Computed example of a mutant assay.
Amino acid sequence: MADSSPTRSPAFSGNAGAPSTTRLEKLKAQSRKPGEASFFFYDAHFKTDAVKVLPGEYFVHDQDLVILTTLGSCIAACLWDRNARIGGMNHFMLPDGGGAQDCGRYGSYAMELLINELMKRGAMRTSLEAKVFGGGQVISGMNTLNVGQRNTEFVMNYLKTEHIPVISKDVLEIYPRKVCFFPHSGKAMVKRLAPTNPDALVAQDRVASQRIVPPSSGAGSIDLF
């Protein structure tokens, strides 16, 4: 396990004698936009505040709390502005499709949500860089639809079109993955999980495979932990 060297913000205090409010409590109390992750907790391993990004969600921040997600055939794109030192992660299930209520589950919308939020928070497109994870074939016998491969091809093509360099990636193969991203430093960590078809990931990938339309013919470091 690599040393993540995360930092934790000091507790915020109001007037002298008033109860202090931790960063975690403040994060939980804030209102959230549609699709913005809201599952906050204290991560005992990294010893810092954390937020879990579920399928269809994204999260952007400028401090080094840890953003976490777990992937099967889904993709998580971690974008970071090297100048503003702000970053974010999304988690999408399919390249495109769907309606407004679940738009974050589709790559074409999920990427726009993430980039737009980063820019609202002070990031610039010209200084963004990406780390990409997921796209694994975690369900045996699902080669025909190639959900993970299609997701991977989509995000790589999207980032190329948007001129956002992919400085590192861990994609495809048969592994589920746990991804951790520190949005202030841009540090990403990935853990390849045993390809034993964890129930939750299998259920998630089966939902994706049932909704997908079969296709017509036609630099930075990542730490393993």
Results as ranks from 00 to 15, higher is better:
M1T: 14
M1P: 09
D3E: 07
S4I: 11
S4M: 06
S4Q: 11
S4C: 06
T7G: 04
T7R: 08
T7F: 06
R8A: 04
S9G: 10
P10W: 14
S13F: 15
S13M: 13
S13P: 01
A16K: 12
G17A: 12
P19L: 09
S20H: 07
L24H: 11
K26L: 13
K26I: 13
L27E: 10
L27V: 05
A29N: 12
Q30M: 13
S31N: 10
A37M: 06
S38K: 05
S38N: 09
D43M: 09
A44P: 00
K47Q: 15
T48E: 03
L54F: 03
P55L: 01
P55Q: 02
P55H: 02
G56L: 00
H61W: 12
H61N: 12
Q63K: 14
Q63A: 08
D64W: 03
V66S: 04
L68W: 02
L68F: 05
T70G: 02
T70W: 00
T70M: 02
G72F: 00
A76K: 01
W80I: 02
D81W: 03
R82T: 13
R82D: 11
N83G: 11
N83A: 13
I86W: 10
I86R: 08
I86G: 06
G87W: 02
N90S: 11
N90R: 08
L94M: 15
L94A: 07
D96N: 14
G99E: 10
Q101S: 15
Q101M: 14
Q101R: 15
C103N: 13
C103L: 06
G107S: 04
M111T: 02
E112S: 11
E112T: 13
L114K: 09
I115D: 00
I115M: 06
N116A: 14
M119H: 01
G122K: 12
M124Q: 15
T126I: 09
K131H: 04
G134A: 08
G134K: 00
G134W: 02
G136D: 02
G136V: 01
V138L: 08
I139P: 04
M142T: 10
N143T: 15
N146A: 15
V147S: 07
Q149K: 13
R150Q: 14
R150H: 05
M156A: 14
N157T: 09
L159Q: 01
K160F: 01
I164Y: 05
I164P: 11
S168K: 02
S168W: 03
S168F: 03
K169R: 11
D170W: 02
I174W: 02
P176A: 00
V179Q: 00
F181Q: 01
F182A: 11
F182K: 08
H184C: 06
S185E: 04
K187N: 09
A188F: 07
K191G: 03
N197Y: 01
P198C: 06
D199P: 05
L201Y: 00
D205I: 01
D205T: 09
R206D: 10
A208Y: 03
A208I: 09
R211S: 11
I212G: 07
V213A: 06
P215I: 05
S216I: 10
G220H: 06
L224W: 15
